[in-house]
Amino acid sequence: MTTTVEATGLVKAYGRRHALAGLDLAARTGVTGLLGPNGAGKTTLLRILATVLPTDAGHLRLLGHDPHEPTGRRHVRRRLGYLPQDAGFHRGFTAFEAVDYVAVLKEHTRTRARHDEVRRVLDLVGLGDVATTKVRALSGGMRQRLGLAQALLGSPELLVLDEPTVGLDPEQRMRFRDLVSEAGRGRTVILSTHQTEDVAAVCSEVVVVTGGRSVFTGTPAELAQVAAGRVWVDDDKDPRAVAGWRVGAGHYHHVGDPPAGAELVDPTIEDAYLLLLGPRAGAGMGEVA
């Protein structure tokens, strides 16, 4: 099981702002989740992994190739599937035509075989019945699935998904997670999210990204353990906690350094995530999923 993605010290700057400030990442077969707040650099990282953006500095190997090299880039793109944030399609195309367009660009030259492949991926995401419907007539959830369908063309070895469940209702999100888990068998999937349930449900590995760096790498269980002994409940809100919020019947759930004699509870991924994000996590963290 070789490493599909090897990245060390990735740097990407926009003017004086560093979107990535020396990020390390290693990913292999299975689903790796990138967890982090907006502006943490997840989208920039994913665009780099999808060969859409070059890095300013750092070492990067995708599927054994160097994406800075034009030939290396082509090799990667042939075995890559990418679902960007706000995936757009020509609104006048039908679902079938929209995916067919991408299939042509993925060098599926033989018409018959290409059309069979388009049908295959549409069936895979449950859009087989709306193949002849125009994109503008599809719901948001369906368009998201259409995006996943085009990413799955050609059964790529590396699948890069940027916030694939954003804007979906809980039922759609569940269905999407099933598709992603299925896709993760025998393939490397890297997805970004700011929803901890996505991580818990599908990821075998999770990387917490904030401020352009990765601050944690490990399994979801290991992530939860980061908050071990640092989660407690109290009847009143404790201002010294890193984050605290109301739960159920008038108690407050806290994350941080517990005072002596506090009632500790088992840590979740969410707790660990908030701890890792640091003090800024406290502000504006009223409701959490």
Binding site: D123, G126, G128, D129
Partner: peptide, 11 residues
Amino acid sequence: MDRPGEGVAVA
């Protein structure tokens, strides 16, 4: 066009 698009259920 507001259809469930649930191909599995139809089958």
